[in-house]
Structures are given as C-alpha cells and as structure tokens.
Amino acid sequence: MNIETSEFHWGMVIDLDRCTGCGACVTACQAENNIPISEQDGIANGRNLHWIRIERYWEGEFPHVRARFLPMLCQHCDDAPCEPVCPVYASYHNPEGLNGQVYNRCVGTRYCANNCPYAVRVFNFFNPKWPKPLEQQLSPDVTVRSRGVMEKCSFCIQRIRRGKEQASLENRKLLDGEVMPACAQTCPPQAIIFGDLNDPDSRVSKLARSPRRFRLFEDLGTEPSVIYLKGGGHDHPG
C-alpha cells in the first residue's frame, strides 16, 4: 500500500562501512521499547524478542577470513508482505510510510511473520516478566505487550510523535535529525541515520542517494525504507 497522505516518509540508512557490530543499538532498543528479557531457554527455542539484531556472517577460512555485520530490523517496506496477509488489519501501513502493528487488534495468526522475508517479526510466546523492581524501568510511552501478539520495530514511533508534538507546540516544522530512534541515537560510529525520505535535503535522503546504496532482497519488490550502504574497501584476499 503506497498511499501516503503525510508530508513525511520515514526512512533509515545503515552504513555498513561504519557499523562495527558492537550491539549498542540492540540494548538501546530493548530499553526504549520495553522489550522483555529473553532467558537462555527462550533464545535456544527461537523466542528472542529483540526488535533489532546484528547478524554476523563468516566468510572464508583462516587466514583469509572476514566477519561481516548486518544490523537487521523491520525494513518498513512500502509494499510490505506482512500487511495484506493479516486478517484483522493488525499489521497496517501508516500515512508516514511506517509499518504499524496494532497490538490489541492482533489475534496471533503469525502469518505476517511467515511472510516477512527479513524475519524481523517476533511473537510473544509468553507474558513478559520483570522481577521487581526491574519493571520500574518500563517506559510509559510504549505498551507492554501481552502474550499471543506479534511485535516488531516501530522506528520508535513514540519518539516521532513526541518530536512532532514538540514541533507543533513551537509552531515550526520538524527539523532534520530532531527525531531519532533509540538505535540511531546511541550508535557510536553513527552507522544508523534516520530521517524523512520525502525531504530531498535531509541527511538520510542524501545518504540514500549514495552509490553504495542497496536494499535487501530488492528482487522481492518489497520496497524497504531501510537502505544499506555497502561496507567497502575490503581488500583482503578472500
């Protein structure tokens, strides 16, 4: 669904030449979005609830070995495969190009997760638990999801809202870089850049025009809003 009625089209650029794979974004996201703690068993059983993950791929054999990192989060596709298959519109497209997920609408068919080629949708297999007083950290801006619902990266929609409200209170337009998801905000090498793709002068738009740009599974026609910049210059043989 490509109908946009808003002036914004949120997008993200991830520069793989900058990404060091450190994992700061993962924890920042977990803190920001009330993501439950997954115990060892849960992760062993494929129930990790992280919204963003760093994929590490090995290449070659010693001594010509490389490790490549690929931060993977919801790609907020313009033509999202998860949206049409949801029978209850829990997965929907918002006017600003975001893939929304309505937790209280979701019945848990998990069809969206199957149809997501990026495998970024996670399912609440159990009710989340935070031993007291860990629950005091939870942010009131983000719903704590109950069991049986799907969830995924929201591009920190609560921060976008907050930014827009602040801008409208001050009767001005939202500035480029004013709104940042937790991952982009914390990323030490600034590999993650977030902004409005509709604004040709925004930092994200400029970077998105880089010759190093590529999108994952472009052939599937999902039109992701996350644009990767190729990690370059690896002149290591192999």
């Binding site: 059983n45 494929g46 990790n48 998990r110 997760a113 199957n114 996670v122 399912f123 069991r147």
Partner: peptide
Amino acid sequence: TTGMGVTGINRPVMW
C-alpha cells in the same frame, strides 16, 4: 492459560 510458548513454534517456524 500459559501461552503459545508451550508449543514447539518458534522464530522462524511460526506455523
């Protein structure tokens, strides 16, 4: 009463 976690379903095998 406890959740879908009692099944063998996981990511990526959601069905």
